[in-house]
Design a protein around this nucleic acid. Structure first.
Lengths: 131, 131, 131, 131
DNA sequence: GTGGTCTAGACCACT
DNA sequence: GTGGTCTAGACCACG
């Protein structure tokens, strides 16, 4: 299964589903046109409520990651053109600054941080190829 | 003032205070031994509830960023010893993977992402020097 | 073809068919007495389920836009007598109020809204002449 | 009360709440900074479930119509700058075309339609002054 | 007291 | 069978 959820995590379950699907798309596990499990199937599989899955799917549709076709199912969207690019870019930068500060408090060099990022990037790229 | 707070924001106010103090320390605005405003002073200054500031201070003490000395006040800790280094390192990596996924959904190249990170790192360093 | 349907769309497919036929009649593409494709033909052409087309035809008959003659086929009605004129008039007014509210939230002047309506009306009229 | 809801309507209750608040803002009944009833208060008043109100509030926040401040309440946003102006403009035009077609089927002249719109606009303007 | 999230179970419209 | 909506009731984090 390409999706896992931790009910005891601080981050909301529906958001974990959203991020999980986005990650699967980014990793190439899910490709444009692929059919997602139905709301109830996925809910069963993750042993969570179907409303929670539905909320996640609605959020994903709003983000243009998936497309919902009534009575047919939900599918990975063809071309996820990001609408509010500026907004998301700003958020991404803020997230980065937050972690630069955090790294500082972990006695971590900036050079080491950059190096770590390169490593993570490399690992991710490798993991992606092995799909 | 080295601290600002936005009551309209998805991130909790007390957490904004925590991050603000950590950022000030990382940027060198606050140095070991420096005295922080009292809970009530800071609450007044930021026009937020003093319970909120108290909660932030408790969190900061738990993180060994500050030290509370009864009857004397609260101070920036001498040596910010990172307690749960492994845990935080794991979180840092997860955050990085999230960036990669997010960048992917913004049609952003991995090389561009790395470049962005370098830029943000550079900007932060500059801001730090100008303090 | 005078009819197109978008399966990915918030508005139900059968309703898109209904509106499409009504639009064709209003634009003069379909005239009283014109024969419509059979349920199965149209379904084939639009690559949608024939139940969906059947539902649309039923709705159109209810609205006196078309007439279904057993064993002969379905035709554009001679005189589209508006049955529930009051009801539809009320809905029309409500829709207009919704436009005004929406325009207001888009920081749009009332004069600009009126101008926009005039433009849309003009464009539609032009499109109609070119059929 | 500036808000009413019809549970038997085809349009979802939560959306009726969304439109009701937007209308109240457009009419000037609710002004920037005004406090909205709490989720549970409004739910009680409209005799609907609090989750339904919560969903409406979340949608309104997404539209920048209101601002939610945790533990304090929800307020009308200061400056409702519309983000996806193009998208909404396109939708507005489509709605207009739909009703032009509809008016045609009601045997209504285009000139009469324009005149009706002017009237509705005038009525709305008057109703607004009487608040 | 505020909104946010989740579960459970139900009904509905659409295909 | 598909997703969308709603109710009922519960728990949690925040201020």
């Amino acid at each position: 299964m390409w999706l896992h959820v931790d009910p005891r995590s601080a981050v909301p379950v529906y958001q974990q589903v959203v991020e999980g699907v986005k990650a699967a798309v980014a990793r190439g596990v899910l490709k444009p046109g692929d059919k997602l499990p139905s709301v109830r199937e996925l809910a069963m599989e993750l042993t969570i409520n179907h409303n929670t899955v539905a909320k996640a799917y609605q959020e994903l549709e709003r983000l243009h990651v998936i497309e919902v076709i009534r009575g047919r199912g939900t599918f990975i969207a063809a071309e996820p053109v990001p609408a509010d690019r500026d907004h998301r870019m700003r958020e991404l930068k803020h997230a980065m600054v937050r972690w630069i500060v955090e790294a500082h408090h972990m006695q971590m060099d900036e050079e080491a941080l950059l190096e770590l990022f390169r490593t993570v990037l490399q690992e991710w790229r490798n993991g992606r190829e092995h799909e």
